[in-house]
Write a protein that binds this DNA or RNA. Structure first.
Length: 243
DNA sequence: AGTAGTGTTCGGCC
DNA sequence: TGGCCGAACACTAC
C-alpha cells in the first residue's frame, strides 16, 4: 500500500469526511479515543507517508507502515486499529500506527520536503543531498527528511529511469545527476499516482521485482545495499556508478 | 504453504 | 554518546 502516492489516493478518497463530526471513535489503538468523540474534522492532509486528520488544536497521524490498510464505509474481518463512525459513513484503519498529536501539522511538517506536495522544492532537496556527501543514493531515496513519501518502489524505478547505480555516493555525483534524481523522483511519483489509480502500477515497473534489464536485456542484480538494506534491482551495465 | 516485503521504531549492545 | 543491528509489529501476494 503505502508510499507517498498511495497516501495521496487515500487522502483524496476520504475528503468527503471533512467538516463531518465523529459520532464514535473505536479501535485497538493505544490512544485516547474518547478525545475524538463529537469532534469535527477540519481538514485531511498528507505529508509523505503520513495521513493527517486535523481537528481544532490537535490531529491524528496515521502511518500505514508496511501492512496497513483501510476501508471507507466498509469493514474488514479483522479488528480495526482505528474506527471513526459518523452519522453517515465510517472510516476504518487496520494494522497501522496511530498517534494523536497536540498542535497544528503546519507547526511540525515542512511541506517543501513532501514529494507529492505543490510546495515541494527542488532546491532544498538538492541542498540536503549536498549536505550528505557520504550517503549512498539508495539510502537518500528512502530518507524521509530528504524525499518524504519516497519508498522502495520509487527508489528502484527512479534509479533505473535515470540510469544511476544505487551504490553511488552523493558526494561523487555530478550536478546533472543530482538534478535528475530530484526531478525524476517527483515525476515518477506522479506516474505512480496515476498508474495506481488506474490499477496498472505493477505493469509499468521497469526494474522493481524484474529479472532482466528492459534496456539491455541482461539479468538485473538484486542486492540489499546501504544502511537501509532494502532490496534494490539494478542493471550493472546501464546504471552508472559514481563511487 | 512458506516466504518475503510498498516501513518505522525501539531497545540492547558495543 | 552514538551508531549499528535485530526484533517487533501484522498482512498477503506470489
Amino acid at each position: 500500500m503505502p508510499e507517498g502516492p498511495s497516501i495521496v489516493i487515500l487522502k483524496e478518497e476520504i475528503q468527503s469526511f471533512k467538516r463531518k463530526k465523529i459520532k464514535k471513535a473505536g479501535g485497538n489503538a493505544k490512544v485516547e479515543l474518547e478525545r475524538l468523540n463529537n469532534k469535527t474534522i477540519l481538514d485531511i492532509k498528507s505529508w509523505g507517508k503520513h495521513l493527517l486528520i486535523c481537528f481544532d488544536k490537535f490531529y491524528i497521524r496515521i502511518h500505514l507502515l508496511m501492512f496497513g490498510s483501510y476501508r471507507v464505509n466498509e469493514k474488514k474481518a479483522s479488528s480495526p486499529r482505528l474506527s471513526l463512525q459518523f452519522s453517515k459513513g465510517e472510516l476504518n484503519f487496520y494494522a497501522c500506527s496511530v498517534q494523536i498529536i497536540d498542535g497544528n501539522p503546519d507547526e511540525v511538517y515542512d511541506w517543501t520536503g513532501d514529494i507529492m506536495s505543490p510546495s515541494w522544492n527542488d532546491k532544498s532537496a538538492i541542498k540536503k543531498i549536498r549536505q550528505n556527501p557520504e550517503m549512498l543514493v539508495c539510502d537518500a531515496l528512502l530518507d524521509q527528511a530528504i524525499f518524504a513519501g519516497s519508498g522502495n518502489i520509487i527508489k528502484n524505478e527512479v534509479l533505473f529511469r535515470i540510469a544511476l547505480h544505487p551504490k553511488s555516493k552523493l558526494g561523487k555525483l555530478p550536478l546533472k545527476y543530482i538534478r535528475a534524481i530530484v526531478s525524476e523522483t517527483v515525476n515518477y511519483s506522479f506516474d505512480f499516482l496515476n498508474w495506481k489509480k488506474a490499477f496498472v502500477l505493477k505493469k509499468h515497473w521497469l526494474a522493481h521485482t524484474k529479472k532482466s534489464c528492459p534496456r539491455c536485456k541482461i539479468p538485473l542484480h538484486k542486492e540489499y545495499p546501504g544502511k537501509t538494506k532494502r532490496r534494490s534491482f539494478f542493471c550493472n551495465n546501464c546504471q552508472k556508478l559514481f563511487a
